[in-house]
Computed example of a mutant assay.
Amino acid sequence: LAPFANRGGESVASDAQGRVYIANGQVFVFAADGAEIGRIDIPERPLQLLVDNRARKTLFVVTHHAVYSVAIP
């Protein structure tokens, strides 16, 4: 068993394109092959990540004080 990415976190979600989002202080974005491809800065520490079930075009980021939405390209 090999690790997918060299980063753990509080939550993980994936989108329709196979990208994986990991909440670890910010939201780190990985390609389906495990290569880190970006970071989404959130004003507060992310606690949980969710992708909408229908269109899979929105990433919801839950923090202690708010829920943020991020459009998925």
Rank of each mutant, 00 (worst) to 15 (best):
G34R: 03
V67P: 00
A71E: 10
G38L: 03
V70I: 14
D41N: 09
G25I: 03
I40V: 14
F30V: 02
F28E: 12
D52M: 08
A32V: 09
A32M: 00
I22P: 05
D33Q: 13
G34M: 04
A32D: 15
A71L: 05
F60Q: 01
P73R: 03
D15M: 09
P73M: 04
R7C: 05
G8C: 02
V61N: 04
T63H: 13
V62P: 02
P73Y: 11
V70K: 08
R54Y: 14
E36I: 00
Q48G: 05
A31S: 08
L47P: 00
T58F: 06
N24S: 11
V67H: 11
F4S: 05
V27H: 01
N53H: 15
V67N: 07
A55K: 14
V51Y: 01
Q26N: 13
K57L: 11
I42K: 00
A66M: 01
A31V: 03
H65Y: 11
D15H: 12
D33S: 11
V51Q: 00
I42V: 13
L47E: 03
V70F: 08
D33N: 15
A31N: 07
F28D: 13
V12I: 15
R19T: 12
R45W: 08
I42P: 03
G25S: 07
E44D: 13
E10M: 11
I22V: 15
E44P: 12
R45G: 07
K57H: 09
L1W: 02
D15E: 10
Q48Y: 06
H64R: 15
I37Q: 15
Q17F: 01
V20L: 08
N53K: 05
V12Q: 01
H64Q: 14
